[in-house]
């Protein structure tokens, strides 16, 4: 996916830029891009170091595990019928905690472990409703401190780099609620269709 997008970016902008007579700007852009990428990385380096350092303490001190415990009622609401206190529930709690605290490095492996737990004893090839819910939750970014973007704003001389946070919290909460409702609604709408297909003798699973 990214392969095609990146190749497209380079090729299409070269074509369009030359057609519009912007060759010089285009050449300049290559070098601006390189130096901007590095200054972006430098801006993020300090924040990422500080934040992951703190989070490592939080993890080692058991604070993250305690927080994961607080998420349990929410998880039971979103994943009805999931075994209580089981491996899947714990893995989901850990993955949500990593997302909420912005541990981008840990969030993906923990989320994949949760997927593997949910896949146990399920037919392969089909995403169970619980798996679908987990992907939906993890694709709605719930984050307490959006450290990366705050650092970017601070570096660019924002008068109040943190001012976006309340709007971010409200937006991501609204997004999550909307996503959960949409998933349930679309699932309910799709059910009759899927049943009809299977009555017609849909594809045989192998």
């Amino acid at each position: 996916m990214l392969n095609k997008i990146w190749a497209g970016m380079i090729l299409i902008s070269t074509l369009a830029g030359l057609a519009l007579g912007r060759g010089a700007e285009l050449s300049g852009a290559v070098f601006t891009g390189c130096s901007r990428a590095l200054s972006l990385a430098v801006t993020l380096l300090g924040v990422a170091a500080f934040w992951s350092g703190l989070m490592h303490i939080a993890e080692q001190s058991g604070l993250l595990a305690a927080f994961a415990g607080l998420l349990r009622p929410l998880i039971r609401l979103l994943f009805p019928g999931l075994g209580r206190g089981g491996g899947a529930e714990q893995a989901i709690a850990a993955s949500m905690t990593a997302n909420i605290f912005g541990l981008s490095g840990a969030a993906t492996p923990l989320g994949l472990r949760a997927m593997a737990e949910l896949a146990k004893g399920q037919p392969r090839g089909m995403a169970s409703p619980h798996m679908q819910m987990l992907v939906l939750i993890n694709s709605a970014s719930l984050q307490i401190v959006p450290a990366t973007v705050v650092a970017l704003r601070q570096e660019a001389g924002s008068a109040a780099p943190f001012a976006i946070m309340p709007a971010v919290w409200l937006t991501s909460a609204a997004t999550l609620v909307a996503g959960v409702l949409l998933l349930r609604l679309l699932t309910a709408l799709a059910r009759p269709r899927r049943q009809r297909a299977s009555e017609k003798g849909g594809l045989r699973r192998c």
């Binding site: 989320g111 679908q132 998933l183």
Partner: peptide
């Protein structure tokens, strides 16, 4: 990445729901 990790091809309405949200 998530669906791929468990080999799920039939992903139901997850992706439309997530994009709409």
């Amino acid at each position: 990445v998530y669906f791929g990790s468990v080999g799920a091809r039939d992903t139901g309405p997850t992706i439309p729901a997530a994009l709409l949200s």
